[in-house]
Design a protein around this nucleic acid. Structure first.
Lengths: 188, 188
DNA sequence: GTCTATAATTCGATAGAC
DNA sequence: GTCTATCGAATTATAGAC
């Protein structure tokens, strides 16, 4: 694949990722993506044979983005508790879009649960990245075999915060709920 | 509207509610509903002029069901803490379908956020029923002005539990997370 | 009030010229 | 590697006989 092709492909995946987030996977048509990516419709069957294949590429891109985010946190924050609190901070940073379209990771997973058994595990891998990483931090805090359940609970509370903020369309709610999550982290 | 008509209408709404839950609102076609309700396709434009109108009827039915559930809890459990724990019990009772399709209330709200500004407030009313009711229980526990934030946090944690159980397709997770929620209730 | 046939549109996907 | 034209299937919705 040539240089120009790789560039087009990347534009398509980024446009698709944004639209899958804002409109949902099902409601996003190839026409929508083509218009957003400024690529002729029929053209991108050259890059992706099916919509599912495009979805896989979108998830792969998001997995890379999550890995980069977690790596950045590790560099910036040495303390395990500070690192864990940065996950809530991530939610607060994207508060404006969060109240509009929900958590990109959570809403995609829930949508795929209802329609696609195939890509369900791909989407779940995004959660796995966060869970594994958080469990490492809890292990560093000496939580032993409780590390993974604690990580699950942390992600659970953050997902709940995202759901409530979206349902009530209130960015303020995120700060309130994340505050309670931070108190919980300090109490451990 | 006659007697037979009312019966047909009810069957349509119930079939639509189940399919909206299992497949999502967008992915459920009139054909799907007609087949499930065993009503000829073209027929139910007599009852509902648009899909949105049908959605409103589905939400109205679910609101009634929630009110009935909360009223039943009030009758069966006099203690506020026991009442609050019954919300988690509701999740555990529907664990089998929960891990398949997510929380009926949460997933519908999140889907409507992305596509329908109109019915968004209707769907949110389901949350309001739970929040108001839970806030009353916290008030009975003497929490004063903190009652509503506490109710929001309770629903937030329960929604998070539902999301995680669905993403990991594990009914066991619900019991684990609900246990932590119950510990939190007891700690107040 | 019930049902069939079908209009009008949109979707994902394909064929093939350039 | 790019783009147009279009297919076949599925969708919401309507018209009209019974």
């Amino acid at each position: 694949m040539g240089e120009k092709g790789e560039e087009n492909r990347q534009r398509i995946v980024e446009a698709a990722s944004a639209l899958f987030y804002q409109q949902g996977f099902s409601k996003t048509s190839f026409s929508d993506i083509a218009a957003a990516a400024e690529v002729p419709r029929g053209n991108f069957y050259y890059y992706f044979k099916t919509k599912d294949e495009l979805l896989e590429a979108v998830i792969a891109m998001r997995l890379d983005a999550i890995r980069a985010n977690l790596a950045a946190i590790e560099q910036e924050a040495p303390d395990p508790r500070d690192r864990l609190k940065r996950l809530g901070k991530m939610l607060q940073t994207q508060a404006e879009t969060l109240v509009e379209f929900g958590c990109p990771m959570g809403t995609l997973n829930l949508e795929l649960c209802k329609i696609k058994a195939a890509q369900r595990s791909d989407a779940r891998a995004m959660f796995e990245l966060f869970i594994d990483w958080a469990a490492e931090q809890f292990s560093a805090l000496g939580k032993g075999s409780a590390a993974r359940p604690l990580a699950m609970h942390l992600l659970s509370m953050l997902q709940g915060s995202a759901v409530m903020s979206t349902v009530y369309h209130d960015p303020h709610l995120i700060g309130q709920e994340v505050g309670l999550v931070n108190d919980w982290i300090d109490s451990l």
